[in-house]
Design a protein around this nucleic acid. Sequence first.
DNA 1: TTAGGGTTAG
Length: 691
Amino acid sequence: MKFLSLKASHYAALLFSKRDLSFSSKTQLSKPPIQKTFFKSSSKDGLISRLCEDKKYKEAIDILCDQKRLREAVQLLNRIQRPSALIYSTLLQCCLKERDLEQGRRVHDHIRASGFVPGLFIFNRFIDMYAKCGSLGDAQKMFDEMPDKDLCSWNTMISGYAKVGPVDEARRLFDEMPERDNFSWSAMISGYVRQDRPREALEFYRMMQKSQTFKSNKFTVSSALAASAVVPCLRSGKEIHGYIMRTGLDSDEVVWSALMDMYGKCGSIEEARRVFDKMGNRDVVSWTAMIDRYFEDGRREEGFALFSELMSSGIRPNEFTYAGVLNACADHAAEDLGKQVHGYMTRLGFDPFSFAASALVHMYSKCGNIENAKRVFKGMPKPDLVSWTSLIVGYAQHGQPNRALQIFELLLKSGIKPDHVTFVGVLSACTHAGLVDKGLEYFSSIKSKHKLNRTADHYACIVDLLARAGRFEEAEKIINDMPIKPDKFLWASLLGGCRIHGNVELAKRAAEALFVIEPENPATYVTLANIYATAGMWSEVAKVRKTMDERKVVKKPGLSWIEIKREMHVFTVGDMSHPKYNVIHEFLKKISKRMREEGYVPDTNFVLHDVEEEQKEQNLSYHSEKLAVAFGIISTPPGTPVKVFKNLRTCVDCHTGIKFISKLVQRKIIVRDSNRFHCFENGSCSCGDYW
DNA sequence: TTAGGGTTAG
């Protein structure tokens, strides 16, 4: 399972941070400008009852809706003799906003029972509410029942089918429409964008441009820019930019944001920044988009610096902002910074129902602080599927796979339906626990019990599980019978299993498949060579190395990093550039001697080169995770846990070595590698040597 | 007095 994916650009950022290791002083976040808390407003019950006594129901309903007390607001209907259209409209709008279909239906029932005859306006509100609450059937029924339809009814239907439902159905309606206007066109374009069909969105945009009757406006260009960003297509984005400048649409801030975001997503980050700098009215969306584009581009320092600037600008961050920054913290395992962001969120107030809260669970989970992840999760009034899944994955990767499975069972009891990502977490928990048969059961339940389609990820997980356990025949049967094409993750898992069990023949097949899919990935060559090396097949090792040279494949450098006092220290294999290198080296030399006395024997199988044993041992002692662990130990007081992060999987020898180190120095050593967490304590590891 | 746009996670 892909856990920590570092793109080439991320490497650049990490390597850059070797020279300038700390988050710059600008990144030290300043004091928050606003002190305000959501969900702590004093109860307005007294006022509401007074208003009801005075029969001022509309005002009472307004307050209840404002406080998200929709159920009570709808209940008030029973006390009103003849509710006005305005009251129904307010309630429907609130149902729509809260996506509360149940209350929406209750309003509908009330209208039917009361004999109120809805006009066009209320009909349109109903269509909108039903469609956006996900009940397209009801929306369609209302639409068909309407005695008269206006352009707005048609547009509401189109925007509801295109937004949440099948966009092709919206297209059918669009074609059937007696007349169209700008709303109809923009609803279609944005619908295609939302349904992840950006090329068709652009096609629609061009069709509109070509038609003489309709002119593009700020709505259609923003959607078209979003479509260009998703493709991504810089050329069409630039074309739209030109159109915007020619037609004066650049007076709108949303258009500017869309423009900036498009440049960022099309890889022109500098151009995005130029647009951002030129913007007259930057709002929280434009700030958030710019910050996220930096993170996406691996420019962590700039992203955090801009976030810090936002915090002092007086503009209040929203859940998108928090989610973006927290995810960057999660990716870079920057827990201290993540905690700081959490502190700001608590002080400024954040919606515990929102995905900012789930981003917190994710951040703590991925940084290995499962206790905090659990604490945040427990504080959520209604944890969403993402939070549940984050916690499951967190436990799975943190050496408590059985706990992960317990959480999954609790999720099922809560009534929330798991999706395919949840099952990736569940299957990976089984893998980490070595629960092969249990994993097979879950795998089969995805389709039979939960009625979900099994994805390539699920197949990769199950093959991983079987291959690690050495059950290659079953793994091969699943591969042969699967209805979808095996992907690179599946073959890589199989190859990994072959490495553990020294299955040379199957390894060759898996590697061949990988060479077709991604000939540029050095990991395949390295693993295959290691399998040959373990089997003593040195001529084959040489062949693999030759192929690597011919195809100009370069081995991905192993990187480990450690955060000490909010400063990031990055190490590569045999790294001598760190200012404290001498002390680190001295420490490693001394501890190696004590490790041998305790019975440690270096495992030299996993060194690619066919060199003398002694030299191989030398190479191993310089692996980046050992350097980072050593630096962590010498830089912190005795007893402090050491937390190290690695971009690749940890090697067998380092794994054994760190077990010894944890015992000798009496420290808890946590290593997050590209696949999971290893928690070393007193000579053993939480993964139970299963990774 | 209804319908259309930009930031988003496991």
